[in-house]
Amino acid sequence: MSTTEPNHLAIPTRPVRTAKNTVSVRRFFSTWVLHTVLVALSFALVLPFVWLLLTSVKTLEEVGVGSWLPGKGGWRWDNYIEVFRQIPFARYYVNSIFIACWVTFLQVFTSSLAAFAFSRLDWPGRDKVFVLYLSTMMLPGLVMMIPNYQIMISLGWVDRFTGLIVPAAFTAFGTFLLRQFMLSIPKALDEAAEIDGASKWRVYWDVILPMTRPGLITLAIFTFMGNYHSFFWPLVMLKSEFRYTLPIGLLYFDSTAGQETNLLMAAVAMSVIPMVIVFILLQKYLVKGIQLGAVKG
């Protein structure tokens, strides 16, 4: 943990005003300021999304004309049905969610194991291996594409979900993140457990993992979102139409036969739903008692 010594915190405190009226007026205004800022920022961040939603209910002829609102063509809600008619959208949906769930699970599980080894166990060469781990993040993925593809071919994983799940499930990033979380858990806890005769596995399952829960959730959100969006690797790996993930399947609407932007936007709007659900469900655990460890080299 960072060591901010209390005596540095020379915060001058003013005498609290006692007049109740003044306080409530001041609170009234500070709430208003806060809300105004929040609404303004949300507005700016959501606006493109609003545009996306509005475009998704336009007719193709009206896409890109001045007004944001659908014009004479009316509000075309059946664009959403049209998406399902033109491409096997439900199949892509299932594929994407399925792959993202598997990757998230494997990633969280193996990363937590590795992070445990890097933060809790002592073994020769540990820090060197960790630097090696870190440095794998620093080489652009593009140059590894072809060698990786060759590996996939020799394993027979091209055009299979395995080929999308397994390589994405082991990354240095997850290990790095969880290691930082684990470092901030006091050593005394697991030492106490070991004195009680607990094995390393027990320490991992019963002491460290529960303490790292916010870290696991963070990593789960990051991984799920990242994988749900991943484009380039699935693009190269998948060949059969019924195995496409959403980002690949949506290419259909951005075609040479004319970009069907309205349908594309409808499809994007629908593809967002699982992520919103995952985010809303997980975010409340995220901020409960989270501890990000001090970074120690």
Binding site: M145, I146, Y149, Q150, I153, V158, L235, V236, L238, K239, E241, Y244, I248, G249, L251, Y252, S255
Partner: peptide, 18 residues
């Protein structure tokens, strides 16, 4: 097969024999 029309995809698959 319309999702395979990206150039780099054709290239990677092509030189890899698939």
């Amino acid at each position: 097969d319309y999702a395979n029309s990206a150039n780099e995809k054709k290239l990677i698959q092509g030189v890899s024999g698939v």
